[in-house]
Amino acid sequence: MSEPTTFIKLDRNILRWRWYKKPNTFRLFVHLLLNANVVDRDFENITVCRGQLLTSRRSLSASLGISEQSVRTSLEHLKSTNEITVRGFSKYSIITVNNYDKYQKTPDKSTAFPPSANHPPTTVQPQYKNDNKEKNYKNDKNTEVRLPALGLFKNVFLTQQELDSLKSQYPDNYSDKIERLSRYLASTGKFYRNHYAVLLQWLEQDLPKEPKRKASYDIDELEKINILDDIN
């Protein structure tokens, strides 16, 4: 019995796409579309979401038969026109195809199927242990809705519930802090397990601190609480 298949959609307007006549860039983009996850899949300590794939320049080079430098150049082309977002780690990268739903419809339960010997996961999964610092922030899929990556560099991850909480508690400052965190992560390469916790800490630090109340040594007040009687 044959397994169900999925398809990608390419609009004929792609003939006028600026990278259509760049063979390596065009091939790479189609390769990413064909290999991106159709549904969320867990890999070790991370979740690779729909429209994403876990890979590396070396793996892409081997799959496409082009040099790693050509892969790097093609990735830069695609990033420059916001076709993809790349989140790099020490041993691999997670590439997100932006607007993935334009190319691949969401499968219903009748067409979605788990990995099997004949149908492996659509992500390229390297065989090595994941470093602790590379653990992605995972959400409980049964209770929380994962949002697209936020911030200028698309590297801040929150659930809908967390974002709503920030909007409610800090309506004037939350968006600035998200952008600040995005720039900080991109410029330093640091990893935080829980972006919501970091944002809360930063926002709480900005709250005005209440001045410390000075101790009162008013004689009348001391007499009222009988402290002077004890002294005498």
Rank of each mutant, 00 (worst) to 15 (best):
K21S: 08
I95H: 07
A112N: 13
N99K: 13
I84V: 01
T73G: 09
N37Q: 11
K102Y: 07
Y92V: 05
K91M: 08
V30W: 06
I46A: 15
S74I: 04
V39A: 06
H31K: 07
T96G: 00
I84K: 02
F43L: 14
V97G: 02
W19V: 13
V97A: 13
L34H: 04
N13F: 08
R16Y: 13
N37H: 06
K22N: 10
V38M: 14
D42L: 06
T73E: 15
T85C: 03
F26N: 10
R50Q: 07
P114Y: 12
I84C: 00
F113P: 00
H119L: 13
N99Q: 14
F26E: 10
N37E: 09
R50S: 04
T106F: 06
S59P: 00
R58W: 11
E44D: 15
R12E: 11
I46Q: 10
R18A: 09
C49T: 03
V48T: 00
V48H: 03
A117H: 14
S67F: 06
H119R: 14
K109P: 00
V38A: 15
K102C: 11
T85N: 11
V71W: 04
S90P: 00
E76R: 11
V39F: 08
L54Q: 04
D42Y: 15
K91L: 05
Q52I: 07
W17Q: 12
T55M: 03
A112L: 08
R27Q: 14
P23S: 10
I84R: 01
F113A: 13
K22D: 06
R41P: 00
K21H: 14
E83K: 09
N24T: 14
K22E: 09
I84W: 00
F26T: 05
L28Q: 06
S67I: 05
P115W: 03
R57H: 07
L34T: 11
E76T: 12
T47Y: 02
S59C: 07
V30Y: 07
Q104H: 12
L10E: 05
R50E: 09
R87N: 14
T96E: 15
Q104N: 15
T25C: 03
K109N: 13
L60H: 01
L75I: 04
E83N: 07
N118S: 15
T111W: 11
G88S: 15
H77P: 06
